[in-house]
């Protein structure tokens, strides 16, 4: 059995393969593997006795799921109305140029994935960028340009003890 199948099986077993737990299973797989490989979805369908179109339908419906591998950090640029009028498109442009990737793409080193979101609900801090749950408010083009390097540096400082 492949590694993916073993991972999926252990998660499916936690929910006793109950079809009502489908969404939770997909969330757990996404959290563990950073994306939903097709092989994993096929295994879920087989183990939970849920038809494949239903599994694939759910997996493609929610933006929390990704069918492509995501980077270690997911950068969410808020494009909600408030952030938009405060210059979010410029922030997005800057990050796209800095990282050399477009929306919904991942850098070749697997560090960053760039996404845009509707609204993060913290409009007073706009324009906002969110990275793996951490909020960076009142973004400027200058700050956005330095953000990826800053994140990489922080991470290195944190992990290399």
């Amino acid at each position: 059995m492949s590694e993916i199948q073993t991972t999926v099986d252990s998660i499916v077993d936690q929910y006793q393969a109950d079809p009502t737990g489908l969404l939770s299973v997909l969330q757990d797989i996404q959290a563990k593997m950073n994306y939903l490989p097709q092989e994993a979805l096929e295994r879920v369908s087989e183990r939970m006795k849920v038809p494949m179109p239903r599994v694939a339908g759910l997996a493609t419906f929610y933006s929390a799921f990704s069918l492509k591998p995501r980077g270690r950090r997911v950068i969410n640029v808020c494009m909600g109305t408030a952030c938009h009028v405060r210059g979010a498109p410029l922030i997005l442009d800057t990050l796209e140029r800095k990282l050399g990737i477009g929306i919904d793409e991942t850098t070749s080193d697997g560090e960053f994935t760039l996404l845009k979101v509707g609204c993060l609900g913290a409009c007073a801090l706009g324009p906002i960028v969110e990275v793996n749950g951490e909020i960076f408010g009142q973004m400027t083009v200058t700050k956005a340009d330095k953000l990826p390097d800053k994140l990489l540096k922080e991470d290195r400082g944190g992990t290399e003890k």
Binding site: P51, T60, F61
Partner: peptide
Amino acid sequence: VNALGFMGR
């Protein structure tokens, strides 16, 4: 048969 479904949104 369940061959079809909605994909995306």
